[in-house]
Structure formats: structure tokens, C-alpha cells
């Protein structure tokens, strides 16, 4: 009897619509994030994550409307990431109904922002996105990862483990660790990356990037030591349902919420 491992479906939202597409049965409009959120809510997802990948400044306001409409129908925790740069951005998202915000570029460019944000809204609502790529080392003795920003396009020169520890100290309440090498590959999480960070910090780590089958979710918890697992396409395209994933993980000895 204890805290259960969380499954978090993640939706990429651009200009208020889901991109990559969501292909559920019984979904009227596959591009509407609110409909997808409602479907995941009733399927028993433990949390939901929206990643706003809108590039233009004008398009930004659409995410507030999406979050607001989601909060009318979904009574589950919601994390929103993408383009969160100011205290005002966070306040607006929380007032619309988000529970946590995921911060990436702003945390790299101005680490103090994490101190200010967690002081203001509490550690529990500040998630830092650790987007990392493996660094090719000559000796190959110790693995290293480098932090990237801008959706994995821009190298920061920062070491991922040092960054993670710094973010924890500054008040992050959770880390969303994404392997940019694995993202979209469907070959599984970078388990060494996940485990290295999860074992070093006291705050929960969400594993992300690379899930292609249910066993990858199990590995993320058992080998990666993650407190939660995030996935997109295996759920969106109906390859597996949330309850199938939970049953599979439970069968493999992981405590899951199945009420």
C-alpha cells in the first residue's frame, strides 16, 4: 500500500490543436485537445500533459483557452509546458486550471527564474524539463548528457546531471527527463539517463522520450527508477489503452492505481 506509479499521456498542441494527431475510437474531432483530454480522463490516466509547441507569439493565447476548457471537464492533474517564461505566464496558466507548469528554455537561460517561480507558487507546481542528449565520450567510462533547449535543437553546454541537481536546489518539485536521442524513436527510454538523474535527486522524476511498447514503461520504472512514465504515440494511436498499460505494469510487479 503506497503511492502508485503514474502514467501520463502527453499531447503536443500547436495553435490550439493537437499535432501528430490523435486516433482514438469514438473521438469526434481528433485534433481537439479538450476532447482528447476528456477521453484520457475517463480512461483513468493519472495525469495529463499538454506541450504547447506554438511558435508564434500571437498563437500563444490559444493554450489558455484549451486549458480553461479542459478544466471544465477533467478532474485530474494537468501539466502545461512550452513557452513558459514569466511569472505572469505561470499565473495565467494556473488560473485557467493548470496544476503544474513545465519549464525548459527559461530554466536554462535564467536559472533564478526557478527560484522565483517556486517561491511564488510552491515547489509542487514547478516542473523542470530536462531535455538531454548523450555526449560521446572518448574513454566511454562514464556516461554524460548535455542539456538542449528549443525542442532539442539548441545545445546549452550544460551537463544534465549538474543541471538537474541545481534545479532541485532552486525549488523544482519534479523533473521531466526527456532523452532527445530517443524521442519519437519508439525504442524505449534512455534508461541510464533516467536512472542517473532519478537516483541523484530527492524529487520525483518523470521518464519521457522513446516509448514504443508497454515493456518500455515497465523498464522506465524498474530500471530507470522513475516515479511516473510519460508517453504520446502509443496511446494516441490506440496501440494500447491506458488500462492495458496499467494492467501490464501491475502484472510486472509495479503498483498501479486501477480503481
Amino acid at each position: 500500500m503506497s503511492l502508485k506509479t503514474r502514467i501520463i499521456p502527453c499531447l503536443d498542441v500547436k495553435d490550439g490543436r493537437v499535432v501528430k494527431g490523435v486516433n482514438f475510437v469514438n473521438l469526434v474531432d481528433a485534433g481537439d485537445p479538450v476532447e482528447a483530454a476528456i477521453a484520457y480522463d475517463s480512461a483513468g490516466a493519472d495525469e495529463l500533459c499538454f506541450l504547447d509547441i506554438t511558435a508564434s507569439h500571437e498563437g500563444r493565447d490559444t493554450i489558455f483557452d484549451v486549458v480553461e476548457r479542459t478544466a471544465e471537464h477533467c478532474f485530474m492533474p494537468l501539466t502545461v509546458g512550452g513557452g513558459v517564461r514569466t511569472i505572469e505566464d505561470i499565473r495565467k496558466l494556473l488560473l485557467c486550471g493548470a496544476d503544474k507548469v513545465a519549464i525548459n528554455s527559461a530554466a536554462v537561460n535564467d536559472p533564478d527564474f526557478i527560484n522565483r517561480a517556486s517561491d511564488k507558487f510552491g515547489n509542487q507546481c514547478i516542473v523542470v524539463s530536462v531535455d538531454a542528449r548523450k555526449v560521446k565520450t572518448l574513454d566511454n567510462i562514464q556516461n554524460k548528457w548535455e542539456i538542449y533547449t528549443h525542442g532539442g535543437r539548441k545545445a546549452s553546454g550544460l551537463d544534465a546531471l549538474e543541471f538537474a541537481l541545481d534545479m532541485e536546489k532552486r525549488g523544482a518539485g519534479e523533473l521531466l527527463v526527456t532523452s532527445m536521442d530517443r524521442d519519437g524513436t519508439k525504442i524505449g527510454f534512455d534508461l541510464e539517463l533516467t536512472q542517473t538523474i532519478a537516483d541523484a535527486v530527492k524529487i520525483p522524476v518523470v521518464a519521457s522520450g522513446g516509448v514504443g511498447n508497454l515493456n518500455h514503461l515497465v523498464e522506465g520504472v524498474k530500471q530507470g527508477h522513475a516515479s511516473a512514465v510519460l508517453a504520446a504515440s502509443i496511446f494516441h494511436f490506440g496501440t494500447h489503452s491506458i488500462s492495458e498499460a496499467k494492467e501490464y505494469m501491475a502484472k510486472n510487479g509495479i503498483e498501479m492505481r486501477q480503481d
Partner: peptide, 8 residues
């Protein structure tokens, strides 16, 4: 982990 975060 602390925070105690999730479903219990």
C-alpha cells in the same frame, strides 16, 4: 521522494 506526489 519528496514531494509526496501522486495517487495514494
Amino acid at each position: 521522494k519528496i514531494p509526496h506526489m501522486g495517487w495514494n
